[in-house]
């Protein structure tokens, strides 16, 4: 009983981390780094609730994906075509999303900071031997596999790797560097958008002004952990997700919070992320031109 709820908790907590990380892996392979993932998760989570209340859970997922893709597009245009600073643009997206969602919650529901999502609007769950499980768990693993295939076994994937490693050579070989990079940025935004929708209309079933609670950044840590391999992002997502789920589970259990104050349980995922990243990172190698704008000579 405890084991299955812990495993289920880890699987559910894995979804936003792995899904967001998977998109970002492809984007970083192409040379665009987005630290605005936290903001994309937040704004698309909000969009998904609005969409779901207008047209059901599927509409919510579509809106979330769309909001994420638009934010990814904005970031991509700034990074690729305007050759802007990717970190500054990402910071801007985080701040903008926080403002839009804080105000959006007031505008939409007339409450400050917290809105519960109706049970009927949540994504229907599957019945499994472990218990009720979100179909998004399966979608996440499939997306990771698809992304791996895309990067390593398609022509587009070859182009993505080329523009990330050596954009000048790719350009000389006739690859449209800007378009491939923009595709990466939009792909990362769209997957983060789907993950944001999952947060609000599935897993946590609420929208608050701080719903992702750092998960966008833990997803970045997952990217680092994965060494840009989507399958390892599933493993990383499960490790980080286990402690995230454990924290959620433990902070609602009276027996545990009497021994360990809930603030320390809540700290757990962040401490674990630090420890894991400290342990593995030395061996990571990133594409040579990641984060750098490309300027044609």
């Amino acid at each position: 009983m405890l084991f299955s709820s812990l495993l289920l908790g880890a699987l559910h907590a894995m979804v936003p981390l792995t899904m967001t990380a998977t998109g970002e892996i492809l984007s970083e392979r192409a040379g665009v780094v987005n630290i605005g993932l936290e903001g994309i998760l937040l704004l698309s989570a909000f969009g998904a609730v609005v969409g779901a209340e207008a047209g059901g859970p599927l509409a919510g997922l579509v809106v979330g994906l769309g909001v994420g893709a638009i934010l990814g597009l904005i970031h991509g245009v700034i990074a690729v075509y305007f050759r802007g600073d990717q970190i500054i643009s990402g910071v801007g997206i985080n701040i903008l999303a926080l403002g839009l969602v804080a105000i959006g919650i007031v505008w939409q529901w007339g409450v400050a900071g917290f809105h519960q999502v109706d049970r009927a609007l949540r994504i229907p769950h599957l019945v499994t031997p472990l218990g009720s499980m979100s179909p998004m768990v399966i979608v996440t693993v499939l997306l990771a596999a698809l992304t791996y295939y895309l990067i390593h076994h398609t022509n587009l994937g070859l182009q993505i790797q080329a523009v990330g490693e050596n954009p000048a050579a790719a350009d000389a070989a006739g690859v449209r560097v800007e378009r491939v990079r923009l595709f990466g940025a939009v792909y990362a935004g769209a997957l983060a958008g789907l993950a944001g929708a999952y947060l609000s209309i599935d897993w946590l079933a609420t929208i608050t002004r701080n719903l992702p609670a750092g998960r966008g950044f833990i997803a970045l840590a997952t990217v680092v952990f994965s060494r840009l391999n989507p399958f390892l992002a599933v493993v990383g997502g499960l490790i980080f997700g286990f402690f995230d789920g454990l924290g959620l589970l433990a902070s609602t259990s009276r027996e545990i919070t009497q021994v360990v104050p809930y603030q320390f349980i809540q700290m757990l995922p962040y401490v674990v992320t630090l420890l894991v990243v400290t342990g593995v990172i030395g061996r990571a190698r990133f594409p040579a031109a990641s984060g750098q704008p490309y300027r044609r000579e």
Binding site: G84, D85, Q86, I88, I95, L96, A97, L98, I103, V106
Partner: peptide, 22 residues
Amino acid sequence: VPLDMVRIVHGVIIIALAAPEV
């Protein structure tokens, strides 16, 4: 107007400043 309106203004300014080439 809710207080967080100014945060939107912050975000727009920063995104606008991210691309000095524009």
